[in-house]
Simulated scan of single mutants.
Amino acid sequence: MDRLTDQAYEPAGDHILNPDLPDYGEDLEQVRDAAVLIGIVDRGTEASILLTQRTAHLRSHAGQIAFPGGKIDEDDDGPVGAALREAHEEVGLESDLVEILGDLGDYYTGSGYRVVPVIATVKPPLILSPNPAEVDEVFEVPLSFLMNPENHQKKSGEFRGKTRYYYAMPFEQRYIWGVTAGILRVLYNRVYA
């Protein structure tokens, strides 16, 4: 799979804003591979990004805003296959509406995942059916909002006894933060900055 650009990138991740914390990508004994789909919906004059609100009963990241995605299974055709499968399972997105553009490289999370953000265009009209076991809601946020650095807030909180920094991109009643906002910031840095 092609990177979005020909430039080679250092792995990105939660550790970039937190140099006093270990580099999650190198210090973890076992990293789990995952992929997410950054679905850019072509709305003519305004493109948007497809996001989900996770259900409140999930064991991890309950109620948070996320890209469709998850663990890469052995049967998947790499990160692209996993991202497409998960998008279909979570929101009912049909792969024939998706055109893969490339990926952003590896993004390491503090929870032990090496995530490959797969970028694609998605053709409307979209008839989506969120899986109620995983997703409360599917929605779109304008790409212009997410790629405006004035909307990228650097926040902090307590994590394992130390101050931890992360990005947040509040939009209307939505609070986009953590890994999702971090990946969006990588998209901004690598494509738009």
Results as ranks from 00 to 15, higher is better:
residue 133 A to L: 11
residue 41 V to A: 06
residue 183 I to K: 07
residue 80 V to A: 07
residue 193 A to Q: 14
residue 149 P to I: 02
residue 186 V to A: 13
residue 12 A to I: 03
residue 126 L to D: 12
residue 165 Y to C: 08
residue 143 L to T: 04
residue 171 F to Y: 08
residue 169 M to N: 02
residue 32 R to V: 13
residue 45 T to P: 08
residue 170 P to H: 00
residue 75 D to Y: 10
residue 31 V to F: 00
residue 87 A to H: 01
residue 29 E to M: 10
residue 2 D to N: 15
residue 93 L to G: 10
residue 163 T to W: 07
residue 186 V to Y: 01
residue 79 P to C: 15
residue 137 E to S: 04
residue 52 T to D: 03
residue 179 V to M: 05
residue 113 Y to C: 12
residue 12 A to V: 10
residue 43 R to S: 04
residue 41 V to W: 03
residue 111 S to M: 10
residue 98 V to C: 07
residue 62 A to D: 02
residue 139 F to I: 09
residue 191 V to H: 06
residue 40 I to Y: 05
residue 179 V to Y: 07
residue 79 P to I: 11
residue 149 P to K: 01
residue 29 E to Y: 08
residue 139 F to Y: 00
residue 30 Q to T: 15
residue 101 L to R: 14
residue 55 T to W: 03
residue 149 P to E: 02
residue 35 A to D: 09
residue 97 L to I: 08
residue 85 R to C: 11
residue 65 I to D: 04
residue 189 N to I: 04
residue 167 Y to H: 14
residue 94 E to L: 13
residue 3 R to Y: 12
residue 67 F to S: 01
residue 72 I to P: 05
residue 49 I to F: 03
residue 54 R to L: 09
residue 43 R to L: 09
residue 151 N to Q: 05
residue 179 V to G: 03
residue 149 P to A: 01
residue 150 E to P: 00
residue 29 E to S: 11
residue 164 R to D: 04
residue 72 I to D: 05
residue 141 V to C: 04
residue 15 H to P: 06
residue 110 G to C: 06
residue 109 T to W: 02
residue 185 R to Q: 14
residue 182 G to W: 02
residue 162 K to N: 09
